[in-house]
Nucleic acid binder design. Sequence first.
DNA 1: ATGAAAGCGCTAACAC
DNA 2: GTGTTAGCGCTTTCAT
Lengths: 336, 336
Amino acid sequence: MANIADVAKAAGVSASTVSYVLSGKRTISKETADRVHRAIREMDYRPNAGARALASARTNIIGLVVPLRAGQNVPVVMEFVAAVVTRARSHDHDVLLLTQDEGVDGLRRVAASALVDALIVMDVQAKDPRLTALRSLDTPAVLIGVPERSTGLSAVDLDFAAAGSRAIEHLAELGHRRIGFIGQPPKVYERGTGYAERLLTGLHTAAAEHDVTLSVAPCESSMAGLRASVTQLLDEQPGLTALIVHNESVLPALREVLLERERRLPDDVAVVAICPDDMASSHGIDYTNIAIPADELGTAAVDMVMSRLPGKNSAETRLLAPDLTVRDTTPDLKAR
Amino acid sequence: MANIADVAKAAGVSASTVSYVLSGKRTISKETADRVHRAIREMDYRPNAGARALASARTNIIGLVVPLRAGQNVPVVMEFVAAVVTRARSHDHDVLLLTQDEGVDGLRRVAASALVDALIVMDVQAKDPRLTALRSLDTPAVLIGVPERSTGLSAVDLDFAAAGSRAIEHLAELGHRRIGFIGQPPKVYERGTGYAERLLTGLHTAAAEHDVTLSVAPCESSMAGLRASVTQLLDEQPGLTALIVHNESVLPALREVLLERERRLPDDVAVVAICPDDMASSHGIDYTNIAIPADELGTAAVDMVMSRLPGKNSAETRLLAPDLTVRDTTPDLKAR
DNA sequence: ATGAAAGCGCTAACAC
DNA sequence: GTGTTAGCGCTTTCAT
């Protein structure tokens, strides 16, 4: 395999010139540049990644920590990963895949061995043991999901508070005044998961503003759990006309459970789901939803982490605006 | 960050000794090894990946090419990726993620720049343009999916011929003699996809052996497509009592379409699906299925590619034996 | 606008 | 069983 010296010889220049032609860190005469480029093409030369990393202290590799076992939102994770890889390539970087399982050690390992220039960590919990480790590394990192204290670390997430408000707002506009919220399982709230709480905040704020009475019920991921939550909500507000669903795993059963209570979806009860787009439209009825924008999150994460590479920029938290798509479960009743 | 010289100094040995302690390529006295290990621990030393790669011509990174956009079997792809990463780690390797989109160039790029020691390529087509490129590289590669000509390349896949035979065999044992096959969409056969054809071969072979009359219908991935295929099969064999389904995306609608033709599943028509386990049991009824063993495929792929690293072993094609899980769609009629 | 030369941190042949 | 030394192929000062 040809190396930089071979190319230099063929082009009749020094190795450093070839390097500068490639990096553009020096102005090179057009003639020289052309000769070098031609030699590169003819020899099909590619700089050796290891040598480059050693000399420049940059690997052009981003480490991506993914919850690979996650039984849950596999398609969302995939979409996110795809976005990260694609965006990374457009910044001339590759992506090294790390699993959640490697935990703190994995982060330390790739950072200390200078395998990666930066880290993107998915599925960050409110109190995540990896946060301390990440702060102690001098490898820039960006978190997907905003933890309780993101001091010193960059983070990007859906703006869950805004998402909550948007859901209420949409229903309020359609005339709904009694709304129920079907949340995540109780343990999600108990362990203080940031996004779940932020969503609640948004819901309550908007409910107050729009004169909406809101009942809240956490919900286990099962038919029985859903029945219990629906019962609770109907006990509190027998006249409720709309639901906001955060536990997307109960969507398949929702219609049936509502029928058991003699409520038809969407005529008696309208529904806004907070879930990935592909989960919104695969249950016989297409749910109006606020999407988890996996693609945008991935792209943003890469951009953020790249902007911090020279260590220049400081940490930031970016919240993506929610996007509500009206489908079949929130009909405009006045229009009938 | 401490480097090998720092560690050597602290342990009172030469740098090469530290290197040899780490690699185990030389016998070291216990005392020396202990001193070195202590120094390493105290300084939290990790060898620089770039330097290591440059000096040893080994990066300890495996490149994994994944169909990231694939709307279809996302969970299977994920499971496979997880298996590859996990297994790679157990061989002390990391995984660099490449997308299908990068195509041939991507393969050339990572191989020529010596970014990876080996390549695993998923979703290989019968006539895949990447095959030629892979053969020309001196980076060992293993394909997931057996192409038409795998000369010089290693490949691993489910033994689809055996899977076909196994499905027939299972149904024959239960007494079924008139069986229909619901295949992949026509274009899959037209483009000569190896696995689809091998499955057919297995079906026909076993059908002959077990005195089974087999009707075959390709099937578009839609309700209408399924109806058409079912109609065709029932026209050919009005008395058929069992189906083998290869197009897993029609499973959700199968029960209903059969009911339209006044056949109840599983009492009037038994079904064996060839699909990932998680797709077998999420349609109201649990399908008897032959699994796509994503996990084993990933593990095997890594093992195969690692065994070829020193360039010693030669290419091999490994076919994994099919595993049939009896669930609710192939009841034992005699037992009633 | 270009070259020469000094590393980057490690491995492995060579020496003893 | 251990040390010495010569690279690995590149980037980046320093020089001109």
